[in-house]
């Protein structure tokens, strides 16, 4: 099955007289990926802990979708998936994870749009960075809630979560690439021939 994008003439491209590379959005596939990621995150991942850290499958899914479908889709998927996790799992907040995954999806999606990143290694790095953002955000939330924390335990848990997330990033990225069947979209704000 080819992963090359289909060539279509967009409205803007037609008016400018230039072809525009785009891909079918495959919204059902994106929704399915998000649903599966959320369900696995709340059902399976909490039981797969090492050194009190657990892999964040959701951040890998959000980053991969953002890489393949851009910052806007990444942000929407991140926000909805984060809120869904908070609704389904026994966590003490509602809205915090949604906001954090939204930031991850948007920021890393935007970076990929600008820099044209699609190789595996940067994507793994992005997943680790995204997980780092989520962990730091949640840590800040705990500080705001005046929860007592021990620096050593926090460092161990965060480090374990980052390493485990890095391990699962590649297989998740490969699966999502296979399902979406296309490389990411570079949103062409500046069209060829715009001057």
């Amino acid at each position: 099955m080819s992963t090359r994008p289909s060539m279509m003439m967009s409205a803007a491209g037609a008016s400018a007289g230039a072809p525009r590379v785009t891909v079918p959005p495959r919204v059902p596939a994106i929704i399915a990926i998000a649903c599966v990621a959320v369900l696995l995150q709340v059902s399976v991942m909490p039981f797969l802990t090492v050194a009190q850290g657990m892999p964040d499958l959701l951040v890998c899914a959000v980053v991969s979708i953002a890489v393949f479908r851009g910052a806007l889709v990444g942000a929407i998927v991140g926000a909805v998936a984060g809120l869904s996790v908070e609704l389904l799992a026994p966590v003490g907040t509602l809205g915090a994870l949604g906001l954090l995954y939204l930031v991850v999806g948007y920021a890393l999606g935007r970076l990929c749009e600008r820099e044209g990143v699609r190789e595996f290694l940067p994507v793994v790095l992005f997943c680790v960075i995204g997980e780092c953002v989520v962990q730091v955000g949640e840590l800040a939330m705990q500080v705001l809630l005046a929860r007592p924390l021990i620096a050593g335990d926090v460092a161990r848990e965060v480090l374990a979560a980052l390493i485990l997330t890095g391990f699962i990033a590649v297989p998740i990225h490969v699966i999502i690439r296979k399902v979406l069947r296309a490389p990411r979209v570079i949103e062409p704000y500046r069209m060829p021939g715009d001057g």
């Binding site: 942000a75 809205g95 500046r190």
Partner: peptide, 28 residues
Amino acid sequence: GHTPLAQRRILARRLIIGGLVVVCVITL
């Protein structure tokens, strides 16, 4: 430097992102 279509897309994108942020913050 953007075409009108591109500018509308940028505006829509910002509105969507901003809306999601507001929803999350209010919910929180």
